[in-house]
Structure formats: C-alpha cells, structure tokens
Simulated assay, not measured.
Amino acid sequence: MSLSDFTGRFRVLGLVCALFVLAGCNVRPLYGTISTGSAPAQEELAAIDIDPADDRVQQVLRNELIFLFQRGGEAAPARYRLRMILNSTKSSVAVEELSDVPAAYLVQMTTSFALSEVATGRTLLTGSTFANASYDFSNQRFANLRAARDAEDRAAKVIADDIHTRIAAYFAEQKS
C-alpha cells in the first residue's frame, strides 16, 4: 500500500465521520417559521409584559428588552410576565501610583429573572445573568459621572441581550 492510497482512504474515512456528526445536527432559524406551521418565537416574545423599573439602570434594561422583544413593532396582548431583580456594584480596579486615587472602576451587574404565564401564574423559565463594564476615572467630575452612566448602560445592554436570547431559545424549543 502506497502513501497516497493511505492518504486517500484517510480522507474518505474523515468525510464519512464528518457526515455522521452533521447528521445529528438540528439547526433551525430562531425567528423563522418551523415546517410544522407553528408561530415563530417572535410572536411569543412580543406578548411579554415586563414589570416596571425602580431606577434608571433598571429602566435602561427594561427599554432594551422591550425593543428586543417587540422589534420596534406593536406589543401583543400580554400572555407572559417577566420579573427581574437587578443588583449593581462598583469597585475600583486600578489606583494611581503616587496619589492613591482610583484610576479605573468596574461596574458589576447581576440580574435574576423569571418568566411566567399571566393566565395561570406558572413559572416557565428562570435564570440569572451578569455583565461587567469598566471605565476610567479622571479629575473631571462631569466626565466621571458620564463614564459611570455609560458603563452601567453598556452592562444593562449585555444583560438584555442575554435574557432575550435565553427566552427566545426557550420559545423556539417549545415550538419544535
């Protein structure tokens, strides 16, 4: 047996193994219609009512989720309710060498959420997610306030994307 025969057989064997691996793959579009004719996950997402916010950061998170769920369209009649608990902390991560003043801060956010049916009150999905965002500290007061607010907004958007993806995946799984 020559080296080229061995290489050719090895390639064919690799191709057959790859086909077996891909045969078990179940890929389908998250927002498209499924071949059974059921409604896409987007219709379920538009029917989620989100509890009111208590502060500015929670309002940013809520607004992001509303936009992600409704895609800028009209809200459907509420069939689901999303409750969230957001915790946020700020800590210094770098200190100026000679002045002992923070040079950078880290905003850490953790959110627990629960999705339930409005009609029955039955909990469908629970989870927790987190995000971190850092910002530099300067000697300008207004710049520090804006940098902190921007870091909070960035972290809230990351959390909103994660919650949206998890809930969309849940509905897509239920439809299959």
Rank of each mutant, 00 (worst) to 15 (best):
Q59V: 03
M1N: 06
A18K: 01
S91W: 02
F137R: 12
N132H: 15
I48H: 15
A131V: 02
P77A: 11
R9M: 07
G121K: 14
V158D: 07
K175N: 14
H164D: 12
R28E: 10
P102M: 08
F113S: 03
S35G: 05
E152V: 00
R11D: 10
R154I: 08
G121E: 05
P29F: 06
T33D: 07
V12G: 06
K90S: 11
D100E: 09
T129G: 05
S4A: 12
S35L: 14
R83I: 02
Q140P: 00
E74D: 09
I34W: 06
D5V: 13
A168T: 08
A23I: 05
G73A: 11
D162Y: 09
S116P: 05
Q70P: 02
V60F: 13
S134G: 11
E97F: 06
I50H: 05
A41H: 00
F69H: 05
S176M: 10
A114N: 01
P52D: 08
D153N: 13
P77C: 00
E117N: 13
S38T: 14
A114S: 05
F67N: 14
N139M: 12
L45G: 08
V12M: 09
S134R: 04
N132K: 11
V27W: 07
N26A: 09
I50M: 03
L125W: 06
I50N: 03
F130V: 09
A156K: 10
Q42A: 15
V27P: 00
G32D: 05
G32P: 06
N132Y: 06
K90G: 01
S128E: 14
N144C: 05
S88G: 01
A47D: 06
A78T: 12
P77K: 08
T129W: 09
V12H: 11
L82D: 03
Q140S: 14
R81V: 15
G8S: 12
L45Y: 10
Q42H: 02
V60Q: 13
M84H: 02
D51R: 13
G8H: 07
D136H: 07
L13Y: 11
F130Q: 13
Q174V: 07
G32F: 05
I50L: 01
T123F: 01
C17I: 13
C17T: 12
A104S: 15
V21Q: 13
L15G: 09
R11V: 15
P52Q: 04
A23L: 15
T120M: 09
